[in-house]
Design a protein around this nucleic acid. Structure first.
Lengths: 237, 237
DNA sequence: CAGTGGTCTAGACCACACG
DNA sequence: GTGTGGTCTAGACCACTGT
């Protein structure tokens, strides 16, 4: 496993910050100083620092230096592509995934359009419920183009589909477009979730693209209103 | 007004893409070619292309080239700090801002904590309603530390507070943390908004920081459920 | 193989902050 | 003034993609 120099420096600095080597509002060493310490060029240090900045670890100030922030260490994930398994690992509550449906289907009108699929394409349909603290909170409906994902099993769906796609199939998942809104709850929502009488759910629609910019997955995540929470760290452009 | 070379190139390429000089899935010229065309170095071109990539305009592919995407041209804003006025300009519906309250207050317990203010700090409180297509949809409650914002008028609040802060006061707004959730509607929500009987609202809490990492604004944006929509473009790290 | 984007270097000059 | 981060250059080598 080979890691880029700037990524290695980024990870090194992240772990130092997390370990408390620098506390919030402490100044980092200057870029010149860091370049000498890591025996590299300043531009490479700057790549690492820009990553830290984008991820909310530091704030850079022209003419002054870079200071460590205290946001960004908590409340992960920030905006980004994060799978439920990665998210679950940061939570205290016990979580469980129940697979309700796992089948190959022919996409119909709306779904075909969403996946930009042709009539000949076959599509995996996966319906899962996420249980958190004993309550059924999230209904996940995933659709994959079968030409990209030849095999799926119940075991994979109970673990992490993302992990399987990336580490086993080596699919180059690259970017996604998310849309969030509040919609009326369907009969399916009422059947699979503990809605406590709510007639609405938060719907997160996720369009996932590969690195050649082809769409290969459409996911609809339906959350119980009172348990929904989304955190986003954003920099002014 | 001086603009950096890589920013100028970025803006040039954005406008060419928006004008349709390259269509979706077209290949951009290679970085080498662009460097020659813009009479600059490849690293500078790469800075511009990375901006295009981050903003969802292009997809870079090692060994192949960069292609133009069709997401990112619509559905603005993507995740980011965007003021209501900027957002309104991209909408078709007529919008209006009504200022209900504009006062200097002493922060009480919860607010003091949220703004990390001391008992001596004075705080601007602004309550505004956003009307879209004739309906009162969004209730915005803004709190600014007065030491950063000496003067606020009703005219400024009806226009764009952000514009005033950035272009007139030159406050270096730098980053923000957003939290979204669905909460019970308050008496205030029912009074100011056309809720149509809903007993919940989408709450977006926004903590805004200056470039020296000091918090100076807390905003709570309360949206009617059925009109709430949030779009996010995210790249896999 | 040639062409592409990804990383890295060792410098340079600039704008900004602070004493 | 010194020191900081921001930009820019002209090269280099690498890994990947296509033919």
């Amino acid at each position: 496993m080979h890691e880029n120099k700037y990524l290695a420096i980024y990870h090194d600095l992240v772990s130092r910050i997390r370990r408390g080597e620098w506390k919030a509002y402490d100044k980092l060493p200057s870029e010149h100083e860091l370049a000498a310490r890591f025996e590299t060029s300043r531009e490479t240090i700057r790549k690492a620092l820009n990553l830290l900045s984008e991820h909310g670890y530091i704030q850079k100030m022209k003419g002054k230096g870079s200071i460590v922030l205290d946001v960004g260490k908590y409340d992960f994930p920030v905006s980004g592509l994060v799978s439920f398994k990665e998210l679950a690992q940061t939570m205290k509550q016990p979580v469980r995934t129940i697979v309700h449906e796992l089948a190959v289907i022919k996409p119909d009108g709306e779904l075909k359009q969403q996946l930009r699929a042709s009539s000949k394409d076959e599509v995996w349909k996966v319906v899962r419920v996420r249980e958190i603290g004993g309550e059924r909170i999230i209904l996940d409906k995933d659709f994959f183009l079968k030409k990209h994902v030849p095999l799926l099993t119940e075991e994979i769906c109970e673990d992490s589909i993302y992990e399987y796609l990336e580490t086993t199939l080596h699919l180059p998942i690259s970017f996604a477009k998310k849309e969030m809104s509040v919609d009326a709850a369907t009969e399916e929502d009422r059947r699979y979730l503990d809605l406590n009488g709510d007639d609405r759910v938060v719907v997160v629609k996720n369009y996932v693209y590969l690195s050649d910019a082809t769409l290969f997955q459409y996911t609809e995540s339906r959350h119980r209103l009172d348990k929904f929470r989304f955190v986003d760290f954003a920099r002014r452009k």
